[in-house]
Amino acid sequence: MKKLIHILVSFALILILWQGAVSLGYWNQALLPSPPDVGNGFLELVSSGTLFAGVKSSMYRFFVGYLLAAFSAVTLGLVLGWFRNAWSFVNPVVQLVRPISPIAWFPFIVLIFGIGDLPAIVIIFIAAFFPILLATVNAVGKVDQTYIKVAKNFGIKQPMLLTKIVLPAAFPSIASGLHIALGTAWVFLVAGEMVGAQTGLGFMIIDARNNLRADLLLANILSIGIIGLILDSFIGLAEKQLLKRWGVIGGNNVY
């Protein structure tokens, strides 16, 4: 309840400052529409079904790309984190590719995968993969060796050792990578849709700009922010449930 109050107060302050800037400023409302105008634009998008269709397309691309990245990065990170010698060879390549913006790969992605949902999914995958991979490798390297010794004394061998012992012990740190990757993937989803998609929230921003509808443009931008906030809250709740299930002490205090 306290968190909800904080969110409502924050939003109220933003709306007051926004309305004050529109009322007292010298901007043309065609360039900076007021909150009521944006609210009417939001209702227009909802009533026409445009917003629902855009959210549906964006969420499909996001979840496919993000879940594929999470599964592959955690799996590979567990293996490379366990076999540190192998990671020593892979790490230089990762550090070379990781700083490159996923959007920079877009021309090659379009040439290889064509136009449609797949290019956006690939961009999301790239954006989410490296933060999760690095977080997982580092987390595995910091697992208390006492857990490993006890597990080996009980005869636990691979792959059970990684999935039943190492993964739960490393998960609080892996969760940080999942959180960071979620925000990064959501940002690059919109960027990818603005470049090459014909549907989705990113495309709707470009379409509103081309039609000089600043009210719809801001309505789409706010929708992206609200959905991002919901996704972040959802992954936080999912993380806490996994920590409780695995009995990780202090799991509720990770975020």
Rank of each mutant, 00 (worst) to 15 (best):
K2Y: 08
K3R: 13
I7Y: 15
L8M: 13
V9D: 09
V9F: 14
V9W: 10
I14K: 09
I14V: 14
I14Y: 15
A21M: 14
V22R: 11
L24F: 15
G25K: 11
N28C: 10
Q29L: 09
L31H: 07
L32F: 15
D37N: 13
N40S: 15
L43Q: 11
E44M: 12
V46K: 01
S48F: 07
S48L: 08
G49F: 05
T50Y: 12
A53P: 02
V55G: 04
V55T: 10
K56V: 13
S57V: 12
M59V: 13
L67N: 11
A69S: 15
A70I: 09
F71Y: 11
A73G: 11
V74S: 07
G77F: 05
L78W: 03
L78A: 04
G81C: 09
R84G: 02
A86F: 14
W87G: 02
F89A: 14
P92Y: 08
V94L: 06
P99S: 07
P102S: 03
P107Y: 05
F108C: 05
I109R: 10
V110W: 00
V110D: 01
L111H: 08
I121R: 04
F125G: 02
A127T: 04
A128M: 01
P131E: 01
I132N: 04
L133S: 03
T136L: 00
V137I: 08
V140E: 05
V140M: 04
D144N: 13
Q145L: 07
T146Q: 08
T146V: 09
A151H: 03
N153D: 00
N153S: 13
F154W: 05
K157Q: 11
P159T: 02
M160T: 10
M160D: 11
L161D: 07
K164T: 12
L167V: 00
P168I: 06
A170F: 09
A170E: 08
F171L: 11
P172R: 05
A175W: 10
A175I: 02
A175L: 15
I180F: 08
I180E: 10
A181W: 00
L182N: 12
L182Y: 07
A185N: 15
W186C: 06
G192Q: 07
G196F: 13
G200R: 12
L201N: 13
I206Y: 06
A208W: 01
N210H: 08
N210F: 06
N210I: 04
N211H: 11
R213I: 03
N220I: 07
I221H: 00
I221T: 06
G225F: 00
I226G: 02
I227P: 00
G228Q: 10
G228M: 06
I230L: 14
L231T: 03
L231H: 01
D232N: 14
S233I: 05
S233H: 10
S233D: 11
F234D: 04
G236L: 09
A238Q: 04
R245M: 08
R245W: 12
G247N: 13
V248W: 04
N253V: 09
V254W: 00
